[in-house]
Amino acid sequence: KKIKIDLKKGPEGLGFTVVTRDSSIHGPGPIFVKNILPKGAAIKDGRLQSGDRILEVNGRDVTGRTQEELVAMLRSTKQGETASLVIAR
């Protein structure tokens, strides 16, 4: 099931960490939400869960991207702006 979640970045950030699983010589594996932090946009919104697979960030497919690339995409969202995620659960 795909779910679109918009998180408005506040002073505590987006409020979640990510982890890559099953990376191989063929490229990075899928990226999942690792933890929801006690402060930040994710816990206020309440929909994002540990174990959700991140498919898109701000309309860009993240398949084949590294964890570092995904984190850079999320960090490029400025405070007060919205990060738009599509996740699979």
Rank of each mutant, 00 (worst) to 15 (best):
V19A: 14
I31N: 14
I36Q: 01
D45W: 00
S24K: 15
T63K: 07
S50Q: 10
A88G: 14
R75V: 12
D6A: 12
P38V: 12
L48M: 08
G59F: 04
G15W: 00
A42V: 02
P38W: 03
G13V: 01
F32D: 10
S76F: 12
K2F: 08
G40T: 02
G29I: 11
P30N: 13
G27H: 11
R75M: 15
Q67R: 07
L14E: 01
T82W: 08
N35V: 09
R47F: 04
R89H: 06
G27T: 12
I36V: 12
E81K: 10
N35D: 13
K78S: 14
R53W: 09
K39R: 04
E69Q: 06
K2R: 02
Q49P: 00
R53L: 11
K78N: 13
S76N: 12
L37H: 03
A42H: 01
T82C: 09
I87A: 11
V86W: 07
R60E: 07
I5P: 00
I54T: 00
E68C: 04
V71Q: 04
P11A: 00
D61Y: 06
S76K: 14
I31V: 05
E56N: 10
T63P: 04
G59R: 06
A42W: 01
R21H: 10
S76Q: 14
P28V: 10
I87H: 02
R53E: 15
V62A: 07
V33K: 00
F32T: 11
A72M: 08
A41Y: 03
F32C: 11
L48I: 04
V33G: 01
G64P: 07
G15C: 00
I36M: 06
T17R: 13
G59L: 05
V33W: 00
K2V: 03
K34C: 04
L48K: 01
L85W: 00
F32R: 07
A83S: 15
G40D: 02
K39S: 10
L85Q: 02
S24Q: 14
D6N: 15
V86T: 12
G80Y: 10
V33C: 05
I31S: 13
L14M: 14
T82K: 11
P28L: 11
M73S: 05
K34D: 14
R21Y: 05
T17K: 06
A88Q: 15
D45H: 02
A72W: 05
A83H: 15
L55W: 04
K39Q: 13
D52G: 00
I3R: 01
P38G: 12
Q79H: 09
S50E: 12
I3A: 02
S24M: 04
G51A: 07
I5A: 01
T77L: 10
N35Y: 09
D22Q: 15
A72Q: 05
G46R: 11
R60K: 07
G40Q: 05
I25V: 06
G59T: 05
V33S: 01
R21V: 13
I54E: 00
G10V: 13
I3D: 03
G10T: 15
I87K: 01
G15P: 00
L7K: 05
D45L: 02
V18I: 13
R89G: 04
L48H: 00
V86S: 12
G40I: 02
K78D: 08
L55A: 05
R75S: 05
D6Y: 15
I5H: 00
T63E: 06
P30Y: 10
I87M: 10
I25L: 09
R75D: 15
R75F: 06
V57L: 13
E68I: 03
L55N: 03
V57Q: 01
V19N: 15
K34H: 10
L55K: 08
R65V: 04
I5N: 00
G46F: 02
K9M: 15
D52L: 00
K44Q: 06
G10M: 15
R47Q: 12
L14D: 00
P38N: 08
D61K: 14
T82E: 10
L37Y: 04
S24C: 04
G59N: 11
G29N: 09
I3W: 03
T82I: 09
G15K: 00
V62R: 02
G51L: 06
L14N: 00
I43V: 10
L70A: 04
K8Q: 05
T77I: 10
T82M: 13
S23Y: 05
K39G: 05
V71D: 15
V62Y: 04
D45E: 12
V57F: 15
V57W: 13
S84I: 06
S23I: 05
A41M: 13
K2G: 04
T66K: 07
K34I: 15
D61M: 05
G46N: 10
G10L: 13
